[in-house]
Amino acid sequence: MSNRHASNETTAVTRKTFWETNEPLILGVGFIVLVIVLWQIVPSFFTMSKGMKLFFATPTMVFTAIGDLIASGKLWPALRFSSSAFAAGLALAIVAALPLGVLMGRSRLMNELFDPFVTAINATPRLVFLPLIIIWFGIGMTSVIVVVFIGALFPLLINTYEGVKNADRLLINVVRSYGASEWDINRLVVIPNSLPYIISGLRLAIGRAVLGVVVAEFFGGSAKGIGVIMVQASSSFQVDLVFAGLIIFMALSLVLTGIVRAIETRFNRWRPEKAKTF
C-alpha cells in the first residue's frame, strides 16, 4: 500500500497525510450521519400507510420528544431516580466485591468453596431473580438497587479475583521475607497489581448496572425512572418517546464507559500489552 503512494508523495503530501490520519474518524462519523439522514428522509421516499406511520419516528421527532421531556420537567425526576439507583447499586457492589475478590484470590480454600456459586450465578441471566426480588423488596427504589447490585457484583468480583491471583509470587515473597504481614502484602503488592483488572471489571460492571436499571424499571421494579417512561410510551404507541428513552440510556452508558476506559488506559500506560487485553 504505502509503496504505491510513495511515487505521488511529492505532489500531494499535505492532503494525503490529512486524509490518511483522519480517515477512520471521517468514515466513522460520516457513516453515522448517513444513517441518521437516511432514517430522516425515508418517509419522503415511501408513502406509508396510516398504520405504519403510527409506528415510525424520524430523528427530528425523537429529538423533539427529548426536548419535550426536558421542557415539561419530566426528565429530571426520572433521571434522578434512575441514576441514584444506579449509583447506590454500583457502590454497594464495589464495597462487597473487592474484599470478597481479594479473599477468593488469596485463599485457595475460599476460592474452591465459593467458585461454584460465582460460576453459576455469573452464567445465569440475573433477570430470572427479578420476580423474586420484587416479592422480597417490593416495588420501588430498593428493588432497582438490588438488581443493579447483583448485576454489577460479579464482573467486579471475578476481575478482582483474577488480578489478585495473578499477583507476582516473587514480589510477594520479597515483601514477606522483609517481615511483612498479610495486610502489608495486600497493600503493597496485591492491590496495586490488581488495580487495572478492577478497573476493567468496573467498566463491565457499569454496562451490567445500566442494564439492571433498564430491566428493573421495565418489569415493575419501580414506579418512576426513564425505563418506566419508555414502557408507558410503548403501551400507548408513542414510538418517538420510546426512542428518546433508548437514546438517553445509550448516551449514559457511552459516557460512563468512556470515562472508565480513559482511566483504564491511564492506568495501563506503563504496563505490558498482556494485561491490557484482559
Binding site: 433498564v214 421495565f218 410510551a233 420510546v242 445509550m250 452508558s253
Partner: peptide, 9 residues
C-alpha cells in the same frame, strides 16, 4: 449500550 431497551420497540 443496554440494547434490552429496544424490547418495547
Amino acid at each position: 449500550s443496554p440494547l434490552v431497551a429496544v424490547a418495547p420497540l
